[in-house]
């Protein structure tokens, strides 16, 4: 019973702030009032007229459009290498690959910046994507590797015994087996990259991503448009989670 009350309190702690934000995004007042006054969509309207904001969303989509395929193209083979081959330094590699998840993003971004400056490369959305790929590669590697470890290799042997060649076996047996881990981690990388500010901070040139735009808004002061941005973000994330959980959580065995 005590635990139930505790859990209810914890859920309230997690959700009252989010609900507050959503409610106030529909408030009419320019400033925060308690209780909220009026109901209006005007902050949403202002948002959709904000060219800078729309451009930042586009920039963020460009970055994720590079980062998601790049992490998959590098991460899936890496997971296979760890799962199927023994090589010197494997245990070390498994740990080192996790490093960017734990080192603050802003520091990884800085480290990459110094190298990029060293070779005189111009900062752009591409350099942002290079950084994000380092940062979120571990997600794909660990998720796909975890799935491969539980994958029954005898299915592949059976396919080969039945006359399937390597390519057929991979496409018909192995790939469907790890499909959910791939889609799930792709969605996770998408969300994380879309939301990342630390790594972006030093790696972006003149183009703002959405989090960088929100950051500059937040530093200027509280404006009700931020609540509207937040509400839209929350709505999009809910859709993404529902889809993501279906793939990462429920795996048919």
């Amino acid at each position: 019973m005590a635990l139930r009350i505790f859990a209810a309190a914890a859920f309230a702690f997690l959700y009252i702030p989010i609900i507050t934000l959503v409610v106030y995004s529909f408030s009419e007042a320019r400033y925060f009032t308690f209780p909220p006054v009026g109901f209006s969509f005007k902050w949403y309207v202002t948002l959709f007229e904000d060219r800078e904001l729309l451009q930042s969303v586009r920039n963020s989509l460009i970055v994720t459009g590079i980062v998601v395929p790049a992490t998959l193209a590098l991460g899936i083979p890496a997971a296979f290498a760890i799962d199927r081959f023994d090589f010197p330094g494997k245990a070390i590699f498994e740990r080192v690959v996790l490093l960017p998840l734990m080192v603050p993003g802003v520091i990884t971004g800085l480290a990459i910046l110094l190298v990029i400056k060293g070779v005189d490369m111009r900062l752009s959305l591409t350099t942002v994507a290079i950084g994000h790929t380092v940062g979120w590669l571990p997600i794909v590697v660990t998720q796909v590797y975890a799935r491969l470890r539980r994958f029954d290799r005898r299915l592949e042997e059976a396919s080969m015994d039945l006359g399937g060649n390597r390519r057929q076996t991979f496409l018909r047996i192995t790939l469907p087996g790890i499909k959910n881990a791939i889609i799930g981690s792709a969605l996770l990388v998408f969300t994380l990259s879309f939301d990342e500010i630390g790594m972006t901070f030093f790696l972006t040139g003149t183009q703002n991503t959405l989090p960088m735009f929100i950051w500059s808004m937040l530093r200027e002061g509280v404006s009700p448009e931020i609540n509207a941005v937040a509400t839209i973000t929350i709505a999009i994330s809910i859709v993404l989670i529902v889809v993501g959980l279906r793939f990462l959580g429920k795996e048919k065995d």
Binding site: P17, I18, T20, D195, I226, A230, T233, I238, I241
Partner: peptide, 28 residues
Amino acid sequence: YFLVIAPLWTSFLLRAFIWKLILGREGM
């Protein structure tokens, strides 16, 4: 379970910002 992990998928910046609305002088 879904409710617990849902916030992880929303903006870190905004989750920090919310508390400014709650704790501020003109806050909730």
